[in-house]
Design a protein around this nucleic acid. Sequence first.
DNA 1: ATGAGTGCAAAGGCTTTGCATTAGG
DNA 2: CCTAATGCAAAGCCTTTGCACTCAT
Lengths: 172, 172
Amino acid sequence: MYENEAVRTVSGPGDHEGRGGHDGYRPPIAEMHRIARDRLSEQDQRYTSARRTIVETLAGIDSPVTLPELLERSPGLAQSSAYRNLALMEQAGVVRRLVHSADHAHYELAEDLTEHHHHLICLSCGSIRDITLAADFERSLDSACGELTAAEGFDLAHHALDLYGYCAACGR
Amino acid sequence: MYENEAVRTVSGPGDHEGRGGHDGYRPPIAEMHRIARDRLSEQDQRYTSARRTIVETLAGIDSPVTLPELLERSPGLAQSSAYRNLALMEQAGVVRRLVHSADHAHYELAEDLTEHHHHLICLSCGSIRDITLAADFERSLDSACGELTAAEGFDLAHHALDLYGYCAACGR
DNA sequence: ATGAGTGCAAAGGCTTTGCATTAGG
DNA sequence: CCTAATGCAAAGCCTTTGCACTCAT
Protein backbone atom coordinates (compact mmCIF):
# COMPACT_ATOMS: atom_id res chain seq x y z
CA MET A 1 0.00 0.00 0.00
CA TYR A 2 2.80 2.38 0.88
CA GLU A 3 6.39 1.35 1.22
CA ASN A 4 8.28 3.94 3.11
CA GLU A 5 9.98 1.34 5.23
CA ALA A 6 13.19 1.80 3.37
CA VAL A 7 13.05 5.52 3.27
CA ARG A 8 13.23 7.44 6.52
CA THR A 9 15.69 5.44 8.52
CA VAL A 10 17.42 8.75 8.89
CA SER A 11 15.85 10.30 11.97
CA GLY A 12 17.92 8.70 14.69
CA PRO A 13 18.20 9.82 18.31
CA GLY A 14 18.51 13.44 17.24
CA ASP A 15 15.31 15.41 17.18
CA HIS A 16 13.30 16.41 14.19
CA GLU A 17 12.90 19.90 15.51
CA GLY A 18 15.72 20.41 17.95
CA ARG A 19 13.35 22.22 20.30
CA GLY A 20 14.52 20.24 23.31
CA GLY A 21 12.31 18.16 25.53
CA HIS A 22 12.95 14.55 24.76
CA ASP A 23 16.21 13.22 26.02
CA GLY A 24 15.43 9.66 25.06
CA TYR A 25 15.12 7.81 21.80
CA ARG A 26 12.24 7.75 19.46
CA PRO A 27 11.79 4.93 17.05
CA PRO A 28 12.31 6.01 13.46
CA ILE A 29 9.17 7.25 11.80
CA ALA A 30 8.86 4.16 9.63
CA GLU A 31 8.68 2.05 12.75
CA MET A 32 5.94 4.24 14.13
CA HIS A 33 3.93 3.86 10.97
CA ARG A 34 4.37 0.13 11.14
CA ILE A 35 3.19 -0.03 14.74
CA ALA A 36 0.27 2.24 13.99
CA ARG A 37 -0.81 0.13 11.06
CA ASP A 38 -0.53 -3.05 13.12
CA ARG A 39 -2.55 -1.69 16.03
CA LEU A 40 -5.26 -0.44 13.72
CA SER A 41 -5.46 -3.66 11.79
CA GLU A 42 -5.87 -5.53 15.06
CA GLN A 43 -9.09 -3.60 15.37
CA ASP A 44 -9.98 -4.19 11.73
CA GLN A 45 -9.21 -0.62 10.89
CA ARG A 46 -7.30 0.56 7.86
CA TYR A 47 -4.27 2.77 7.97
CA THR A 48 -5.60 5.46 5.68
CA SER A 49 -3.80 8.50 4.41
CA ALA A 50 -5.52 10.79 6.90
CA ARG A 51 -4.40 8.55 9.72
CA ARG A 52 -0.89 8.39 8.34
CA THR A 53 -0.84 12.16 8.09
CA ILE A 54 -1.82 12.48 11.73
CA VAL A 55 0.86 10.05 12.88
CA GLU A 56 3.37 11.82 10.68
CA THR A 57 2.50 15.18 12.17
CA LEU A 58 2.49 13.98 15.76
CA ALA A 59 5.80 12.23 15.22
CA GLY A 60 7.32 15.44 13.91
CA ILE A 61 6.62 17.38 17.07
CA ASP A 62 7.94 16.56 20.51
CA SER A 63 5.06 18.11 22.41
CA PRO A 64 1.37 17.35 22.53
CA VAL A 65 -0.65 19.52 20.17
CA THR A 66 -4.17 20.83 20.14
CA LEU A 67 -6.50 20.07 17.30
CA PRO A 68 -6.14 23.48 15.63
CA GLU A 69 -2.37 23.07 15.79
CA LEU A 70 -2.66 19.63 14.32
CA LEU A 71 -4.80 20.89 11.47
CA GLU A 72 -2.38 23.71 10.75
CA ARG A 73 0.45 21.25 10.33
CA SER A 74 -1.56 18.70 8.42
CA PRO A 75 -2.51 20.12 5.06
CA GLY A 76 -5.75 18.80 3.66
CA LEU A 77 -6.94 17.28 6.89
CA ALA A 78 -10.55 18.08 7.73
CA GLN A 79 -11.52 18.87 11.29
CA SER A 80 -14.10 16.14 11.60
CA SER A 81 -11.74 13.58 10.14
CA ALA A 82 -9.08 14.64 12.58
CA TYR A 83 -11.38 14.22 15.56
CA ARG A 84 -12.76 10.96 14.27
CA ASN A 85 -9.38 9.47 13.52
CA LEU A 86 -7.83 10.68 16.74
CA ALA A 87 -10.60 9.00 18.71
CA LEU A 88 -10.22 5.86 16.70
CA MET A 89 -6.47 5.79 17.05
CA GLU A 90 -6.72 6.53 20.73
CA GLN A 91 -8.83 3.44 21.13
CA ALA A 92 -6.34 1.47 19.10
CA GLY A 93 -3.52 2.60 21.37
CA VAL A 94 -1.75 4.71 18.79
CA VAL A 95 -2.64 8.13 20.12
CA ARG A 96 -3.08 9.56 23.58
CA ARG A 97 -5.42 12.40 24.37
CA LEU A 98 -4.60 14.76 27.21
CA VAL A 99 -7.30 16.86 28.82
CA HIS A 100 -5.98 19.46 31.20
CA SER A 101 -8.20 22.43 30.63
CA ALA A 102 -11.66 23.26 29.47
CA ASP A 103 -10.56 24.48 26.08
CA HIS A 104 -8.66 22.30 23.61
CA ALA A 105 -7.46 18.83 24.39
CA HIS A 106 -3.90 17.91 23.45
CA TYR A 107 -2.91 14.89 21.40
CA GLU A 108 0.33 12.97 21.21
CA LEU A 109 1.50 9.56 20.09
CA ALA A 110 0.96 6.77 22.59
CA GLU A 111 3.86 6.22 24.93
CA ASP A 112 4.92 2.90 23.51
CA LEU A 113 5.42 4.54 20.15
CA THR A 114 7.68 7.04 21.78
CA GLU A 115 8.74 6.61 25.38
CA HIS A 116 7.28 6.88 28.85
CA HIS A 117 7.36 10.52 29.87
CA HIS A 118 5.60 13.20 31.87
CA HIS A 119 4.42 16.71 31.22
CA LEU A 120 5.38 20.26 31.98
CA ILE A 121 2.22 22.32 31.79
CA CYS A 122 2.41 26.08 31.64
CA LEU A 123 -0.11 27.80 33.86
CA SER A 124 0.11 30.89 31.73
CA CYS A 125 -0.09 29.80 28.09
CA GLY A 126 -1.34 26.26 28.57
CA SER A 127 1.39 24.73 26.45
CA ILE A 128 2.57 21.23 27.30
CA ARG A 129 6.06 19.82 26.99
CA ASP A 130 7.37 16.35 27.49
CA ILE A 131 9.85 15.50 30.18
CA THR A 132 11.52 12.27 31.21
CA LEU A 133 12.38 11.16 34.73
CA ALA A 134 15.57 9.37 35.61
CA ALA A 135 14.97 5.66 35.07
CA ASP A 136 15.69 4.67 38.66
CA PHE A 137 13.39 7.29 40.04
CA GLU A 138 10.72 6.24 37.61
CA ARG A 139 11.06 2.72 38.89
CA SER A 140 10.64 3.69 42.51
CA LEU A 141 7.69 5.88 41.60
CA ASP A 142 6.14 2.96 39.85
CA SER A 143 6.55 0.58 42.74
CA ALA A 144 5.32 3.13 45.26
CA CYS A 145 2.18 3.60 43.18
CA GLY A 146 1.74 -0.12 42.86
CA GLU A 147 1.84 -0.77 46.59
CA LEU A 148 -0.43 2.10 47.39
CA THR A 149 -3.13 1.21 44.91
CA ALA A 150 -3.00 -2.50 45.66
CA ALA A 151 -3.79 -1.69 49.27
CA GLU A 152 -6.81 0.28 48.11
CA GLY A 153 -8.21 -2.41 45.89
CA PHE A 154 -7.51 -0.27 42.88
CA ASP A 155 -6.34 -1.98 39.72
CA LEU A 156 -3.58 0.32 38.49
CA ALA A 157 -3.13 0.72 34.76
CA HIS A 158 -0.71 3.62 34.45
CA HIS A 159 0.33 6.84 36.09
CA ALA A 160 0.77 10.42 34.96
CA LEU A 161 2.92 13.02 36.64
CA ASP A 162 2.09 16.55 35.62
CA LEU A 163 4.29 19.45 36.60
CA TYR A 164 2.55 22.80 36.61
CA GLY A 165 4.38 26.09 36.48
CA TYR A 166 5.59 28.73 34.05
CA CYS A 167 7.46 27.87 30.90
CA ALA A 168 10.63 29.65 29.86
CA ALA A 169 8.72 31.66 27.25
CA CYS A 170 6.17 32.92 29.74
CA GLY A 171 8.85 33.88 32.23
CA ARG A 172 7.00 33.72 35.50
CA MET B 1 -0.93 34.35 56.78
CA TYR B 2 -3.26 32.16 58.78
CA GLU B 3 -2.35 30.37 61.94
CA ASN B 4 -4.08 27.04 62.02
CA GLU B 5 -1.05 25.30 63.40
CA ALA B 6 -2.56 25.15 66.85
CA VAL B 7 -6.02 24.14 65.79
CA ARG B 8 -5.41 21.21 63.57
CA THR B 9 -5.36 18.71 66.35
CA VAL B 10 -9.09 18.60 66.62
CA SER B 11 -10.52 16.52 63.81
CA GLY B 12 -8.56 13.39 64.44
CA PRO B 13 -7.71 10.68 61.97
CA GLY B 14 -11.37 9.78 61.83
CA ASP B 15 -13.16 11.06 58.76
CA HIS B 16 -16.27 13.16 58.56
CA GLU B 17 -17.84 10.56 56.38
CA GLY B 18 -15.90 7.43 57.01
CA ARG B 19 -15.85 6.69 53.31
CA GLY B 20 -12.13 6.05 53.34
CA GLY B 21 -9.66 7.87 51.16
CA HIS B 22 -8.01 10.47 53.31
CA ASP B 23 -5.58 9.12 55.82
CA GLY B 24 -4.46 12.56 56.93
CA TYR B 25 -6.01 15.34 58.92
CA ARG B 26 -8.49 17.87 57.78
CA PRO B 27 -8.94 21.14 59.58
CA PRO B 28 -12.32 21.46 61.26
CA ILE B 29 -15.01 22.91 59.06
CA ALA B 30 -15.08 26.22 60.92
CA GLU B 31 -11.43 26.65 60.14
CA MET B 32 -12.07 26.01 56.47
CA HIS B 33 -14.78 28.61 56.41
CA ARG B 34 -12.48 31.08 58.05
CA ILE B 35 -9.71 30.46 55.54
CA ALA B 36 -12.15 30.65 52.65
CA ARG B 37 -13.52 33.94 53.88
CA ASP B 38 -10.04 35.35 54.33
CA ARG B 39 -8.89 34.34 50.88
CA LEU B 40 -11.96 35.80 49.29
CA SER B 41 -11.74 39.04 51.18
CA GLU B 42 -8.15 39.38 50.03
CA GLN B 43 -9.63 39.58 46.57
CA ASP B 44 -12.37 41.93 47.70
CA GLN B 45 -14.94 39.20 47.43
CA ARG B 46 -17.63 38.46 49.95
CA TYR B 47 -18.19 35.13 51.57
CA THR B 48 -21.82 34.75 50.58
CA SER B 49 -24.16 31.99 51.53
CA ALA B 50 -23.83 30.29 48.16
CA ARG B 51 -20.08 30.22 48.58
CA ARG B 52 -20.36 28.94 52.10
CA THR B 53 -22.70 26.22 50.90
CA ILE B 54 -20.17 25.12 48.31
CA VAL B 55 -17.34 24.98 50.82
CA GLU B 56 -19.60 23.13 53.22
CA THR B 57 -20.49 20.54 50.60
CA LEU B 58 -16.94 20.06 49.36
CA ALA B 59 -15.69 19.72 52.92
CA GLY B 60 -18.24 17.01 53.58
CA ILE B 61 -16.98 14.76 50.83
CA ASP B 62 -13.51 13.31 50.58
CA SER B 63 -13.45 13.03 46.80
CA PRO B 64 -13.68 15.58 44.04
CA VAL B 65 -17.21 16.01 42.71
CA THR B 66 -18.71 17.01 39.41
CA LEU B 67 -21.01 19.95 39.12
CA PRO B 68 -24.20 17.89 38.97
CA GLU B 69 -23.08 16.03 42.08
CA LEU B 70 -22.35 19.30 43.81
CA LEU B 71 -25.79 20.65 42.95
CA GLU B 72 -27.46 17.51 44.22
CA ARG B 73 -25.82 17.90 47.57
CA SER B 74 -26.29 21.64 47.79
CA PRO B 75 -29.99 22.42 48.07
CA GLY B 76 -31.02 25.73 46.56
CA LEU B 77 -27.80 26.27 44.66
CA ALA B 78 -28.32 27.36 41.06
CA GLN B 79 -26.15 25.94 38.33
CA SER B 80 -24.86 29.26 37.09
CA SER B 81 -24.09 30.41 40.60
CA ALA B 82 -22.20 27.22 41.23
CA TYR B 83 -20.07 27.65 38.14
CA ARG B 84 -19.51 31.31 38.83
CA ASN B 85 -18.57 30.83 42.44
CA LEU B 86 -16.38 27.84 41.76
CA ALA B 87 -14.42 29.84 39.21
CA LEU B 88 -14.16 32.73 41.60
CA MET B 89 -13.08 30.57 44.49
CA GLU B 90 -10.62 28.75 42.31
CA GLN B 91 -8.96 32.03 41.55
CA ALA B 92 -8.97 32.90 45.23
CA GLY B 93 -7.23 29.63 46.03
CA VAL B 94 -10.13 28.08 47.89
CA VAL B 95 -11.19 25.53 45.30
CA ARG B 96 -9.35 23.40 42.81
CA ARG B 97 -10.82 22.31 39.52
CA LEU B 98 -9.71 19.03 37.98
CA VAL B 99 -10.16 18.40 34.30
CA HIS B 100 -9.50 14.84 33.27
CA SER B 101 -12.09 14.13 30.63
CA ALA B 102 -14.19 15.88 28.09
CA ASP B 103 -17.36 15.66 30.13
CA HIS B 104 -17.71 17.10 33.62
CA ALA B 105 -14.85 18.72 35.49
CA HIS B 106 -14.34 17.77 39.14
CA TYR B 107 -14.07 20.21 42.01
CA GLU B 108 -12.47 19.91 45.42
CA LEU B 109 -11.17 22.19 48.15
CA ALA B 110 -7.71 23.60 47.56
CA GLU B 111 -4.94 21.48 49.01
CA ASP B 112 -3.97 23.87 51.76
CA LEU B 113 -7.48 23.67 53.13
CA THR B 114 -7.17 19.93 53.25
CA GLU B 115 -3.86 18.27 52.59
CA HIS B 116 -1.53 17.56 49.71
CA HIS B 117 -2.74 14.45 47.92
CA HIS B 118 -3.03 12.71 44.59
CA HIS B 119 -5.79 11.06 42.62
CA LEU B 120 -6.99 7.62 41.71
CA ILE B 121 -8.95 7.96 38.50
CA CYS B 122 -11.18 5.14 37.33
CA LEU B 123 -10.91 4.47 33.61
CA SER B 124 -14.32 2.86 33.66
CA CYS B 125 -16.63 5.16 35.60
CA GLY B 126 -14.51 8.29 35.69
CA SER B 127 -14.73 8.68 39.44
CA ILE B 128 -11.84 10.26 41.30
CA ARG B 129 -10.58 9.45 44.76
CA ASP B 130 -7.94 11.08 46.89
CA ILE B 131 -4.83 9.28 47.92
CA THR B 132 -1.82 10.31 49.98
CA LEU B 133 1.78 9.30 49.39
CA ALA B 134 4.16 8.46 52.18
CA ALA B 135 5.73 11.70 53.38
CA ASP B 136 9.27 10.68 52.60
CA PHE B 137 8.41 9.55 49.13
CA GLU B 138 6.53 12.75 48.55
CA ARG B 139 9.63 14.66 49.54
CA SER B 140 11.87 12.82 47.13
CA LEU B 141 9.31 13.23 44.40
CA ASP B 142 9.25 16.93 45.07
CA SER B 143 12.98 17.33 44.93
CA ALA B 144 13.28 15.21 41.80
CA CYS B 145 10.72 17.43 40.10
CA GLY B 146 12.48 20.55 41.29
CA GLU B 147 15.83 19.55 39.87
CA LEU B 148 14.37 18.44 36.60
CA THR B 149 12.36 21.58 35.94
CA ALA B 150 15.09 23.93 37.09
CA ALA B 151 17.34 22.43 34.44
CA GLU B 152 14.68 23.13 31.85
CA GLY B 153 14.15 26.76 32.77
CA PHE B 154 10.67 25.92 33.98
CA ASP B 155 9.35 27.67 37.06
CA LEU B 156 7.64 24.87 38.96
CA ALA B 157 4.53 25.72 40.93
CA HIS B 158 3.17 22.33 41.93
CA HIS B 159 2.85 18.75 40.77
CA ALA B 160 0.01 16.32 40.31
CA LEU B 161 0.32 12.56 40.27
CA ASP B 162 -2.66 10.83 38.74
CA LEU B 163 -3.08 7.07 38.96
CA TYR B 164 -5.33 5.59 36.31
CA GLY B 165 -6.92 2.20 36.58
CA TYR B 166 -10.09 0.49 37.73
CA CYS B 167 -11.73 1.27 41.03
CA ALA B 168 -12.95 -1.43 43.38
CA ALA B 169 -16.55 -0.84 42.37
CA CYS B 170 -15.81 -1.28 38.69
CA GLY B 171 -13.80 -4.41 39.35
CA ARG B 172 -11.58 -4.46 36.31
C1' DA C 1 -19.88 -2.81 -6.75
C1' DT C 2 -19.60 -2.27 -1.83
C1' DG C 3 -18.40 -0.68 2.38
C1' DA C 4 -15.23 2.25 4.83
C1' DG C 5 -13.43 6.92 5.03
C1' DT C 6 -13.96 11.80 4.17
C1' DG C 7 -15.78 16.56 4.38
C1' DC C 8 -19.21 19.89 5.19
C1' DA C 9 -22.52 21.54 8.03
C1' DA C 10 -25.54 20.97 11.80
C1' DA C 11 -26.34 19.26 16.39
C1' DG C 12 -24.73 18.09 21.34
C1' DG C 13 -23.22 19.02 25.88
C1' DC C 14 -20.58 21.36 29.35
C1' DT C 15 -19.75 25.91 30.67
C1' DT C 16 -20.21 30.88 30.41
C1' DT C 17 -22.67 35.14 29.96
C1' DG C 18 -26.70 38.79 29.68
C1' DC C 19 -29.99 40.75 32.14
C1' DA C 20 -33.48 41.60 35.38
C1' DT C 21 -34.20 40.69 40.34
C1' DT C 22 -32.81 40.16 45.07
C1' DA C 23 -29.89 40.53 49.03
C1' DG C 24 -26.44 42.75 51.86
C1' DG C 25 -24.00 46.84 53.95
C1' DC D 1 -29.89 53.27 48.20
C1' DC D 2 -26.18 51.03 45.64
C1' DT D 3 -23.24 47.62 44.53
C1' DA D 4 -22.53 42.80 44.38
C1' DA D 5 -24.63 38.34 43.90
C1' DT D 6 -28.19 35.38 42.21
C1' DG D 7 -31.17 32.79 38.89
C1' DC D 8 -33.09 31.88 34.62
C1' DA D 9 -32.46 31.45 29.99
C1' DA D 10 -29.75 32.13 25.99
C1' DA D 11 -25.32 32.01 23.86
C1' DG D 12 -20.38 30.02 23.27
C1' DC D 13 -17.18 26.75 22.22
C1' DC D 14 -15.02 22.29 21.68
C1' DT D 15 -16.39 18.12 19.97
C1' DT D 16 -19.46 14.78 17.85
C1' DT D 17 -22.69 13.25 14.47
C1' DG D 18 -25.70 12.98 9.99
C1' DC D 19 -25.42 12.46 5.45
C1' DA D 20 -23.97 12.50 0.80
C1' DC D 21 -19.72 11.75 -1.82
C1' DT D 22 -15.31 9.50 -2.81
C1' DC D 23 -11.98 6.07 -2.77
C1' DA D 24 -10.00 1.69 -2.23
C1' DT D 25 -10.65 -3.18 -2.45
